[in-house]
Design a protein around this nucleic acid. Structure first.
Lengths: 340, 340
DNA sequence: GTGAAAGCGCTAACAT
DNA sequence: ATGTTAGCGCTTTCAC
């Protein structure tokens, strides 16, 4: 129960040398004699001296800290990203300060402000759904804080970002559906005002074109949650009579649709093949296991952190913003097993 | 693209007053004249002055920061806890520094050290599975840093903790199984060297006793992962002939067992009712939906942070360590629907 | 009512 | 080879 931690001054006093000598000795400065170095280091070790990161940060104007603002921590995709970010941060000696916006704009603004108050060296942000004004982010950028967006971004802000290749992911999985024999594929789509909604739908349409299949507008339904599957079950079941495949904009919607069809006696994948998007852990547990594309959150987190480190550690050079598009990986499972 | 952020000194110079006057004016110190206050505040607002948290931390020996070490960020239970911790931290003006140990002892040691280096005011820790030595935590505690354990702890360390009531949770769910008609309940158990393993098994045994059912040692199997369910499938299927209920130590094991039985033609819950532990999101998606008990991670996170704040903000008083046991909530679903 | 000075822990330019 | 000094941004005691 000793008081405050040992400081360089404490060591200096104990050893009868000056604080600067201690400081230099500890970092093997060439000027310091070997004898002094030994003495200082041995003593520092003995008293378990540890530099005060706050003091260092204040002195060097660098906190070795990065801030991350995430809409929801307890969401598999985001927590996977967090994990990737943390892994790299750990390797590179950065500490992670974390905030969640809860999809709330006001809160996001405050999060960013607090992180800046704590003098983070950089910022990773996935913007909340309710964010309509980006001045808090612009302000941060203008005061010279490197920012990297992940997953959700704004075109208004010229900065690095790492995003999922939604278009190619959707194209990939729809091509897979077609290759395994599906020709009339129902797309359960997200609102087209959301980027993921329009990009994934674009990929679906492209895959049809790739295979010379005429696109039927009747086979696109705005339906992107399990709840919507249930409220639209009649409509979906009616379409079901005339389809042999479903591509849903996310795994949860795909799974709910699959359950609906199964309970009505459809065989998955023999009557209708089903595919999702995201590769949530549930995809491997549900029966039949769900074909989907993996949105590699861990990789995205590492990429985002890599880009941020580049910006932070080369603050003089200022290359134009880069966008890293992370490709998805097809996870072929039972829900699209060969059949037709 | 201005350089560094505005400091109190900048304001002082611009206004031709001293830094101390600015400092006092900004915090409404009674000595300062209203006129000066107005001038200072107006100017500070104009230039968007924000105090430097690093400098404040150094000065006050308080960083308004807490560290959290978690075995795996991308694990639903832990990310839910994180979310609860963050929610309270946000409300109380603390910033969260996050680390994951990846269940690695060495890494956990380093995490704790780095957080201390950053002068966190307190520490939340869930110890890694490979941690066998607790001196890093003891050291932190001895140097007067408040620590609260969550979920996983060590009896060697006298400090606050918040844990799940594993015993009562298991008892609760087994009593439910019995009440709905199951009499011969197979327990898929975790190793008894793990606290959750022994506590949940104790709850199972207690529930049998509560209902005057003789416990049959043959009905306890060491099997706590889906992989183990599969490698032990023969054994489980053999037991299945003579049981009418299963209580698995976690949801994933329960679900895998349920799948195994379903595929062999057993009706769930009519032939055999199945229950898990944890209430993973998948429990509501799988078919049949899984009866389980909710381990309220969000609540646990808030509780842990509350206890930590108490310690941090009353460092003079030092009450003896408290243990907060968070009760589980029965989530009754289809896998134990009335039948038998 | 306001300013000067010291100090939180550390470093670096400038002595000697 | 080592010490002195100043300063990172802020607060606070003491002086006027």
């Amino acid at each position: 129960m000793k008081g405050h931690p040992i400081s360089i001054n404490d060591i200096a006093k104990a050893l009868g040398v000056s604080a600067s000598t201690v400081s230099r000795a500890l970092k093997d400065h060439p000027d310091i004699s070997d004898a002094t170095k030994e003495r200082v280091k041995a003593f520092a070790e003995m008293v378990k001296y540890r530099p005060n990161a706050l003091a260092l940060g204040l002195k060097h104007q660098k906190s070795n800290t990065v801030g991350i603002v995430v809409p929801e921590i307890a969401h598999h995709f985001f927590s996977t990203i967090l994990s990737g970010v943390e892994a790299l941060a750990y390797n590179r000696g950065y500490q992670l300060m974390i905030c969640q916006s809860n999809e709330d704009f006001i809160r996001e603004e405050q999060n960013v402000q607090t992180l800046i108050d704590h003098r983070v060296d950089g910022l990773l942000i996935s913007i909340s759904k309710s964010t309509i004004d980006y001045s808090h982010i612009k302000a941060a950028l203008e005061s010279n804080i490197p920012i990297v967006f992940f997953d959700r971004f704004s075109n208004e802000i010229p900065t690095d970002k790492v995003i999922t290749n939604d278009f190619e992911g959707a194209r990939l999985i729809c091509n897979h559906l077609i290759k395994r024999g599906s020709k009339r594929i129902l797309h359960l789509a997200a609102p087209q005002c959301l980027l993921i909604g329009s990009e994934r739908q674009r990929g679906y349409i492209q895959a049809l074109a790739d295979n010379n299949i005429t696109q039927n507008p009747e086979l696109i339904l705005n339906c992107d949650t399990p709840a919507m599957v249930n409220s639209m079950s009649e409509k979906i079941l009616q379409k079901a009579k005339n389809i042999d495949g479903i591509f849903a904009v996310n795994d949860f919607t795909a799974i709910e649709a699959m359950k609906l069809l199964k309970n009505k006696g459809y065989k998955i994948p023999d009557d209708i093949a089903v595919a999702g998007f995201g590769d949530d852990p549930i995809a491997t547990i549900i029966e039949p296991t769900l074909t989907t594309v993996e949105q590699n959150g861990y990789e995205m987190g590492k990429e985002a952190m890599t880009m941020l480190i580049n910006r932070m550690e080369n603050k003089n050079s200022n290359p134009s913003p880069k966008t890293k598009v992370v490709n998805t990986i097809l996870r072929e499972r039972e829900s699209t097993g060969i059949g037709g």
